[in-house]
Design a protein around this nucleic acid. Structure first.
Length: 953
DNA sequence: TACGGCACCTAC
DNA sequence: TAAGGTAGGTGCCGTA
């Protein structure tokens, strides 16, 4: 195998003094590209700062003398004195939570006992950190007022409910004296079903603490009696809303918005401060001003982003265990959001380490001191966002466990609240979308953990999620080359080998920052938080539903609608979309593709489908509705028209989709707007899924099945329309034929010879078909495939032309082995090349020849399958591996170390299936040893013009 | 050997 | 407590 060097030819001579022992490899001869990059940071900073301050390549043997003042750069900018009576305080809020605490004098709300206090953390324009305690907001929920209820009954209801809730408590360790703070009558309407626009009387029940809501709700549902009203069950509304969301909705605060505390309306904490933030203030919840993220309020504060990576000295062949194996290095990089490069680049090392230009090295002789000092470093730098690669499930838990083992008592305080210990917890998160995911969590109040691995797992489907693979995929860059197995040896070597390790460690801290930047994660997540209104942290810790709930509550509040608590019980599935039976084959003529844009959202808007417009059959007469007041959907469900009542969901969708974002020339502002566009689109598409989520907050199958019902009707109608109009008898060149279609698209053979003609006719057809549907439903011309290989439902490939009829944009493959991650790369590459042969070179014989060649290459390198030496080894390895990605790596090795007999019974059919079957059993892996059929079958059966072609069956 | 059930992953 | 949807191809495995 060729040994590739990163930076050109071998260095002659070289400055390295580490040329002894087995650790000496060519790698150390010359600085890596990454080291040159680091050095460049240094030069740029020297220029910018004209030499003052710390030049960043010190090696500081701190030992016992560590002080957080070691580097003035670590600290946040000086915070000018704040005069609450004359200064407004403005900050971007990035994290929001609540705690139970004692009331603060002068603030609204309960005075006695523990009260819930919302806490917002944020950053000002000048980069100063803020902790803001928000007082006076209490949790509440609703129940319908019983018949005959008047203001005179309020006190009795409150007293009785308070009494039963108190009685219900098994222990009252907080010594709660009052559970129900208030009961008020308000006019509200349930958002579920259309009720004739008649608000009814509801009781708004305010509780002392969020955790009292659930028992109060349960007791009311079970049957509650007060005064001389009969015992009855009360249906609860909005009793299942997270307190943070409740607060944000009611105070019009969205995730990551800017908060203004007007002068004279807040208090500065001087002495009793509980946080590490530079400003700590108290404010009444109704005194804070929340700015919608428009215009100047779209900006992003200079947040501090810390990325870090640790190295441990593990034992040979054993995964490091924090109870045993020491932490030997921690690399940290800190970057201000919006800037190009990190301004802090530091490695904490155990034992001495040679200098690295462009970074600061702090050497420790005791691991205990290393850990404690790093924690102090974190507290000094005071990052708003903490990132890294798999920090959530590895680095942070490892550090905490290691610190506990070594009894570093001051380590586990990594958040922004004094005395609030960071503890490790196990949590499991399960959804159909992502399967069961076991995670560890570490609390760090006021800092947002933004583990890049978690971001990638949520947002990208990749073949491999190793940092190396991901970096290569997105940045065409790789990790420094250090094998895990030699880390301990490097540590036990000399200051040069430890230097090599430090460079590696630094790069692992640097790559997540680069990826964060490249993928614009911070901006995109902030925009998602702003659009959907949830705290930033929810986006990585919660599912899709909470985002829709947040928007729904905001829209509902404007119309005095309340959301019922529905009990979730899985029911029958409902019918989804239609997939048109494909006319399988190879098409050497242009195929136009027409798509409904945002099909499901546009159906909901066009037909006013919503909880609030859903009409019960029994209510039609009762509410005196005329036939023209409502519609019957294809599934037989009734919904009132927007002239009777405009639905909430259509309103939300209009807001999401109609937002015409103005052209922006400033590149930074443009990034923010692009992020918002993305967030708007994703949010619109998740509304339908929310209504169909049977294990969810507010499922409504009448809505979801009506949506898919309309969709089925529409794709069918589209096919009919196109095939009936574009005919020879109507003067067109040929009879058009819809050869395939899935959910919201039709692939049409229009019978024209050129891509340009297909584009023109496709556009015309889309426009004409659109006119048959209710706005905003719109069919659009999207692309032309030429040629087009249609293998089966959800499996096809073609050259994709969208704007330029002369040049194709790409080869588009759907559902084929090339895009599936359960095939080994060999198969994917082979099929990909075959498809290129067929579609681009139009040479099916070439495809077959290529397949033959690859397979015979395999056979030539054959190792007798009966030699099980390697197989046993691999079996053992396979059992050690848990993940799928290991699976793929394993496959790669197997393909090249094994081979198989081929089936000679069918001369044109080459099968690797025996290997496939065999390996599956051999490895004891569940399924899908990723070798599959490579069926290359020459046939002209489906060819329209009887020419030679290849079908992949 | 045929077939249903399941896991996995994708299309939309 | 929290957890978006259905359609469908493909291969493995157990069962008759």
């Amino acid at each position: 195998m060729e040994f590739k060097r990163r930076n050109g030819g071998p260095a002659v001579g070289g400055a390295s003094q580490a040329k002894k022992g087995k650790m000496n490899t060519e790698w150390e001869d010359s600085p890596s590209q990454f080291e040159e990059e680091l050095a460049l940071f240094d030069e740029m900073e020297m220029e910018a700062e004209s030499g003052e301050g710390q030049a960043g390549h010190d090696v500081i043997p701190v030992g016992d003398l560590f002080s957080a003042d070691l580097n003035p750069r670590w600290k946040r900018p000086h915070a000018p004195p704040l005069q609450p009576n004359s200064d407004t305080l403005i900050f971007q809020q990035i994290d929001l939570d609540y705690y139970l605490g004692s009331a603060v004098a002068g603030m609204p709300g309960q005075v006695q006992g523990k009260v819930p206090i919302v806490r917002m953390f944020g950053v000002t324009d000048s980069g100063n950190s803020v902790c803001c305690h928000v007082h006076g907001f209490a949790p509440y929920f609703y129940v319908p007022a019983p018949n005959g209820f008047t203001n005179a009954h309020l006190a009795e209801f409150q007293r009785e409910l308070n009494s039963v809730v108190l009685k219900d408590m098994r222990s009252n360790k907080d010594n709660i004296a009052v559970t129900v703070l208030a009961v008020d009558i308000t006019k509200k309407e349930s958002m579920y079903h259309y009720h004739g626009n008649k608000p009814l009387e509801f009781l708004r029940i305010t509780m002392a603490m969020p955790r009292l809501i659930a028992p109060a709700k349960r007791l009311l549902e079970q049957g509650f009696k007060f005064a001389n009203f009969a015992t009855q069950s009360y249906q609860a509304y909005e009793a299942n809303i997270d307190f943070e969301i409740r607060f944000m909705v009611d105070s019009d605060v969205v995730g990551c918005c800017w908060i203004e505390l007007p002068k004279g309306k807040y208090r500065l904490r001087e002495e009793r401060s509980v946080s590490l933030c530079q400003y700590e203030v108290d404010v009444a919840w109704n005194h804070l001003v929340s700015h919608p993220a428009e215009g100047e309020w779209q900006r992003i504060a200079p947040l501090r982003v810390l990325s870090f990576d640790i190295e441990c000295a593990g034992r040979k062949g054993v995964f490091p265990e924090p109870e045993i194996d020491p932490v030997i290095q921690i690399a940290s990089m800190v970057q201000r959001q919006g800037e190009k490069e990190p301004f802090i680049r530091t490695v904490f090392t155990l034992q001495s380490c040679a200098s690295i230009v462009g970074s600061q090295i702090l050497c420790f002789t005791q691991e205990k001191q290393l850990l404690q000092s790093w924690a102090e470093f974190v507290r000094t730098v005071d990052p708003d966002i903490i990132t890294g690669y798999n920090i959530q499930n590895f680095d942070l838990p490892y550090l905490l466990n290691r610190a506990a083992t070594l009894k570093v008592s001051l380590f586990p305080y990594l958040g922004r609240v004094w005395g609030c210990k960071s503890v490790l917890k196990d949590s499991s998160f399960q959804s159909k979308q992502m399967g069961r995911r076991e995670n560890k969590t570490v609390n760090m109040e006021g800092r947002v953990q933004f583990d890049l691995l978690q971001v990638l797992l949520r947002d990208y489907k990749l073949r491999s999620y190793t940092l190396n693979a991901v970096s290569f995929h997105f940045l065409q860059e790789q990790k420094e080359d250090v094998q895990h197995s030699i880390i301990t040896d490097l540590q036990n070597g000399n200051e040069q080998t430890r230097r090599r390790l430090a460079v590696y460690c630094l790069k692992d801290a640097y790559l997540p920052l680069r990826l964060l930047q490249k993928l614009m994660c911070v901006i995109n997540y902030m925009e998602m938080a702003r659009v959907t209104g949830v705290p930033l942290t929810y986006l990585l810790s919660r599912g899709q539903q909470i985002k829709v709930v947040s928007q729904l509550l905001r829209q509902a509040m404007k119309q005095d609608l309340v959301m019922p608590v529905v009990r979730t019980e899985g029911g029958e599935d409902y019918t989804g979309a239609t997939v048109i039976e494909p006319e399988k084959g190879y098409y050497s003529v242009p195929i136009a593709t027409l798509d409904f844009s945002s099909l499901y959202p546009s159906i909901m808007m066009a037909h006013n489908l919503c909880y609030t417009t859903l009409l019960q059959k029994s209510q039609v007469d009762k509410l005196g509705l005329a036939p023209e007041d409502f519609i019957k959907t294809p599934t037989g469900d009734l919904f009132v028209k927007s002239s009777v009542r405009k639905g909430l969901l259509p309103e939300i969708l209009e807001n999401l989709l109609s937002a015409e974002l103005k052209k922006e020339t400033d590149p930074f502002k443009k990034q923010v707007l692009d992020g918002r566009q993305l967030a708007l689109k994703i949010s619109a598409n998740s509304v339908y899924g929310f209504t169909g989520a049977q294990v969810g907050k507010l499922p409504c199958l009448e809505i979801s099945q009506s949506v898919t019902g309309f969709g089925r009707q529409m794709i069918e109608q589209t096919k009919q329309l196109v095939e009936s109009r574009y005919t020879i008898s109507n003067g067109y060149q040929a009879d058009a034929k819809v050869v395939y279609g899935d959910t919201d698209s039709v692939m049409v053979k229009l019978g024209v010879a050129t891509v340009q003609e297909a584009m023109n006719l496709g556009k015309e057809a889309a426009e004409w078909v659109s006119s048959h549907f209710v706005p905003p439903i719109k069919l659009e011309f999207e692309k032309v495939y030429y040629p087009y290989l249609l293998i089966n439902k959800k499996r096809y490939a073609g050259l994709y032309f969208s704007s330029n009829a002369e040049h194709h944009d790409k080869m588009d493959c759907k559902g084929i082995e090339t895009v599936r991650r359960d095939n080994c790369p060999l198969v994917a590459n082979l099929i990909n090349t075959c498809l290129q042969n067929i579609l681009i070179d139009r040479d099916p014989d070439g495809a077959v020849a290529h397949a033959k060649e690859v397979i015979s290459d395999l056979l030539c390198n054959r190792i007798d399958i009966s030699q099980l030496v390697i197989t046993k080894e691999l079996t053992r390895t396979a059992q050690e591996y848990a993940g799928k990605q290991a699976h793929v790596e394993l496959a790669e090795r197997c393909v090249f170390t094994h081979s198989t007999t081929w089936s000679s019974s069918c001369p044109n059919l080459y099968s690797l299936n025996p290997l496939h079957n065999l390996s599956g059993r051999m490895f004891g892996l569940h399924t899908n040893f990723p070798i599959t059929w490579i069926p290359i079958n020459r046939t002209a059966k489906n060819s329209p013009n009887n020419s030679k072609c290849v079908t992949l069956l």
